[in-house]
Amino acid sequence: MTKVKSLADLKKMKETLQAKIDLREKGEAAENLVQIKVAMATCGIASGAKNVMDFLLEELEKRGINAVVTQTGCMGYCYAEPTIEVKLPNADPVVFGYVDTKKADEIIERYIKNGELVDGIIPVNYESIDNK
């Protein structure tokens, strides 16, 4: 595949991308959608949240896991940044603290793929994070 350099190149990618999206939306994967939020306020960004987000976006796609990864604002866990919230289908959201790429890898392989619990869960008493 040649490099995407111009808007025309981008346009040429449209069909390939559309096919990928259709596959994901129509396939059985749709019921298995994993939702991940990465806290991206100043504390999170300063402690590496962007790397973690990049890693998640790249690896989930590579490993064929149907997931949406979004940014969220401050979760208020300055001490534990970077933090991410992971919501598996039919489960309550879980917040992990001190997530680096190694931890993120463990979360994908053990928690997301197998539902095993991994260290680093921050106990929470709310349902889901929202921006501020």
């Binding site: 490099k3 995407v4 350099k5 111009s6 808007l7 025309a8 190149d9 981008l10 346009k11 990618m13 449209k14 991308l17 559309q18 990928k20 999206i21 994901r24 976006l57 790249e58 989930l60 796609e61 997931a67 949406v68 990864v69 979004t70």
Partner: peptide
């Protein structure tokens, strides 16, 4: 416009946009 309405926030779209900008 170039992607003709494909969702920009789709996980497959992001790496392509990134490659376009980086190159």
């Amino acid at each position: 416009e170039a992607l003709e309405g494909l969702p920009l926030n789709d996980p497959s779209v992001y790496p392509v946009v990134k490659e376009y900008i980086n190159s």
